[in-house]
Design a binder for these strands. Structure first.
Length: 421
RNA sequence: GGGAGCGUAGCUCAGCCUGGGAGAGCACCGCGCUGUGGACGCGGGGGUCGCGGGUUCAAGUCCCGUCGCUCCUCCCA
């Protein structure tokens, strides 16, 4: 057996995990700030859940989804995204019956079988929100405001970000627009790449975000979805834009933004970084007003977004180099001699019970070595030598300033915080 | 899915072109200093040279294959 991880799977080691924990905490706290509550979902679902919602013809389902039979032959999938699961849970547990807007968030691993590269693994991590139950454009605006706020909160500047925005209309508009695209692109079929010639039949919307140079000419003059919106959808979008302006959130209308998932309706958006290359989207989302009904629930509109943790970590560590690791311990015990060590084990257990992060050397290192480890790991060293111990005292050394003081052990153990800053 | 580059010590990498000693820096351990860290000096441990095959008297070095990572493209988070 080869001792190595599976392709596309990655270990996040303690040094990096610190940043992940910080980010996850920020994300959770901003989500709560907006009234979203966590939902924890299974990583495994029926494969059909995704093929029906995300779309059979999408890249995600068609070539990137991990699908396999379980022992009974049932087709299961490792989730490639979480919105479908959220909606499944929403219907399964009758959350709509509460008659209120359901504001939910999640954070966790997703799986897509892709060619791995930096910032894109086969197991990756997404955080996201979903608000189910309202068609109010103010809710679209809230979700977008949340996205901006979150990015700023984790340390990205407004100037380094931009919002791509579009509306692709409702299920009444879509066939009209689709036909418009189909007839437009049919006229110049020979100019399109092979993929796009196929897309022309399957889903002409997808031609719009094709990056092939040869397709660009044709795409530039393509009909825009905004010109095919019904009255209601147009009003919805106008209202959203107006609220965004009131909130001072800038946007760039991008008629080519269609996104890679079939369930979207009306509003679609991506919040992107100016500092990333081709993979510049930090998070993306939009409305999915037909999704609940599609899965057998009552007609219920929804809006949300999902962002990638890996990409966020990438941008953040790109900006500022990983700051020198601060000592994670309050106290490092430095016993001297056998007697000191016995005593150290007792003190260790006591301090930990008092909530003081404490550790000691288990490697049999020399005193100087233990001191150097102490300096790296902790703010204070507590030296336990026979001389002091015989008088019931210990020596506390501040490893930052280098000053030390001798103090009675019972007094220190009674209120250790009085001696630690 | 298509194209390119790179895999040598825990880490960063040199060595490969022009085949013959497996190396440097950092990290780690010990000693100078057996009761006190960050400096310095001296010494030490650690490598299936990604893996498999081929060429050769001889392969880290040349050839083929394979796996992995990285970059571009694609896709998207």
């Amino acid at each position: 057996m080869k001792v190595e991880s599976v392709r596309g799977m990655r270990d996040i080691l303690p040094e990096e995990a610190g940043l992940w924990q910080k980010l996850e905490n920020e994300i959770r706290s901003v989500f709560s700030l907006y009234g979203y509550r966590e939902i924890r979902l299974p990583l495994l679902e029926l494969a059909e859940l995704f093929s029906r919602t995300v779309g059979e013809a999408t890249d995600i389902v068609h070539k990137e989804m991990y699908v396999f039979p379980d022992k009974k032959g049932q087709m299961l999938a490792l989730r490639p995204e979480a919105t479908a699961s959220v909606v499944r849970a929403y219907i399964e547990h009758g959350l709509y019956a509460k008659g209120d807007l359901a504001k939910l968030y999640y954070i966790g691993p997703m799986f897509r079988y892709e060619k791995p590269q930096r910032g894109r693994q086969r197991q990756f991590h997404q955080y996201g929100v979903e608000a189910l139950g309202s068609l109010d454009p103010a809710l679209d605006a809230e979700v977008i405001d949340l996205a901006w706020h979150l990015m700023e909160r984790v340390g990205l500047s407004r100037e380094g970000l931009f919002l791509r925005l579009n509306s692709i209309g409702c299920r009444e508009d879509r066939p009209l627009y689709r036909e418009a695209l189909r007839s437009y692109f049919s006229g110049q079929k020979e100019k399109l790449c092979l993929d796009c010639q196929r897309r022309l039949e399957e889903n002409p919307l997808r031609i719009l975000d094709c990056k092939e140079p040869q397709c660009q000419g044709a795409i530039t003059g393509a009909p825009k979805s905004l010109d095919y919106l019904c009255e209601k959808c147009r009003e919805h979008f106008e209202e959203l834009l107006s609220i965004l302006r009131d909130l001072g959130l800038s946007y760039e209308l991008d008629p080519r933004l269609v996104r890679g998932i079939d369930y979207y309706t009306r509003t679609v958006f991506e919040l992107c970084s100016r500092e990333l290359g081709a993979q510049d989207a930090l998070l993306g989302g939009g409305r999915y007003d037909d999704l609940v009904e599609l899965l057998g629930g009552p007609p219920t509109p929804g809006v949300g977004f999902a962002g990638g943790m890996e990409r966020l970590v990438l941008v953040l560590s790109q900006n500022r180099p990983v700051d020198a690791e601060a000592p994670d311990l309050d106290v490092y015990l430095v016993p001297i001699g056998e007697e000191g060590r016995r005593k150290a084990l007792e003190i260790l257990a006591s301090l930990r019970r008092l909530g003081i992060a404490t550790d000691l050397d288990y490697m049999g290192r020399s005193l100087r070595k233990v001191m150097s480890v102490a300096a790296r790991r902790a703010r204070y060293a507590l030296l336990l030598g026979p001389d002091e111990l015989s008088q019931g005292k210990v020596n506390l050394k501040d490893l930052r300033s280098g000053t030390s003081s001798t103090l009675p052990l019972p007094e220190f153990l009674a209120r250790p915080r009085d001696f630690l800053s």
